[in-house]
Amino acid sequence: MKITSLIALFLFAVQLAFSQSENPVHGKVTTEGFPTAGIEVINQTSGSVVVTDASGKFSIKAKVGDVLIFAGKNYTSRRVTLNQKDFGKTGVETNMNQEAIQLVEVEIKKEVDDVKPEPPAVAPLRSVDNILNSPTNMMVYNGAIIHGLDFVAIGKMVGNLFKGKKKDKVISNIEMKEYISDNFNKDFFLNTLQLKEDEIEIFLEFCYADAKMSTLINNNNVLEITDFLISKKEEFRKLKN
């Protein structure tokens, strides 16, 4: 009985000494399942600071009950109070969330090249002697029609009158999805439009239903499509509310 009591007392003393002394605690920081480098790990109790490496891992001295603060630029800070399990092999697994970047104002300006048109070149006047001595004597009629009608150009103009107006190509939803995927990444919808991840597909279907989307993709103007998506986001929010 005395031996059992002594063993229990010894184990309690060891645990108490461990909890009051600093020991290395290991851990890993991830964001959406991917390792996150450059996150500061601060022991609020002792004031020591380390930074996660390229694999998102860190090691810092601490003791049971210490508070670790995880902070990084564009990330939401997290606090973790250490317990006995955190000093084991598994260590501290922490997930960081990126802060949404608010787009205050976007101003799009069309650049215009500042090129001044050059005045047309003026041909020098020819003297009467030069005209008479010219290989093509303008004073003698040779049967050619000078400044005659350009029948080829007139034929093209007449043909254009009978051509119908070219219609825009009809863009399918699959082609729209491919275009959006090629020109807009996931961060644009999460950060710029501030949509939730499960709202992105529903929002795009809402945009595809607008005939203007097909016209803009036909024109291949990314700036106009960006404005269109921002305006549609406001309509989408009103519908949800």
Rank of each mutant, 00 (worst) to 15 (best):
T4K: 14
T4R: 10
S5V: 06
I7K: 08
I7R: 07
V14I: 13
L16W: 05
A17H: 06
F18V: 13
S21Y: 09
E22S: 14
V25D: 01
K28C: 05
G33C: 07
G33K: 00
T36A: 07
E40T: 06
I42A: 01
T45G: 02
V49G: 03
V51C: 03
D53A: 14
K63V: 07
D66G: 03
V67F: 00
L68V: 05
F70D: 00
Y75P: 00
V80E: 00
L82M: 02
N83E: 03
Q84T: 11
K85E: 12
D86R: 00
F87D: 00
G88A: 14
K89N: 08
T94R: 03
N95G: 04
M96N: 01
N97D: 15
N97E: 11
E99S: 13
A100L: 15
L103R: 01
V104E: 06
V104L: 10
E105P: 02
E107R: 12
K109A: 03
K110I: 12
E111Y: 09
D113W: 03
P117F: 07
P120R: 15
A121V: 07
V122P: 02
V122Q: 14
L125G: 05
S127D: 00
S127W: 13
S127M: 06
L132Q: 06
S134G: 10
T136R: 08
N137D: 11
M139K: 02
N142K: 03
N142L: 04
A144H: 05
H147R: 12
L149W: 12
G155D: 13
M157I: 13
G159C: 04
G159P: 01
L161C: 08
K167M: 08
K167T: 15
K167A: 13
I171V: 15
I174C: 02
E175A: 07
S181Q: 13
D182P: 01
N185W: 09
K186M: 14
F189T: 04
F189S: 06
F189P: 04
L190W: 02
T192F: 10
K196P: 01
K196V: 05
E197R: 09
E197K: 10
E197P: 01
D198I: 15
I200W: 11
E201Y: 13
I202F: 13
L204K: 08
E205P: 07
E205M: 08
Y208L: 01
Y208F: 15
A211H: 08
K212I: 09
K212A: 14
S214I: 02
T215A: 15
L216F: 13
L216Q: 04
L223C: 06
T226A: 07
F228W: 03
L229W: 04
K232M: 13
L239Y: 09
K240S: 11
N241A: 12
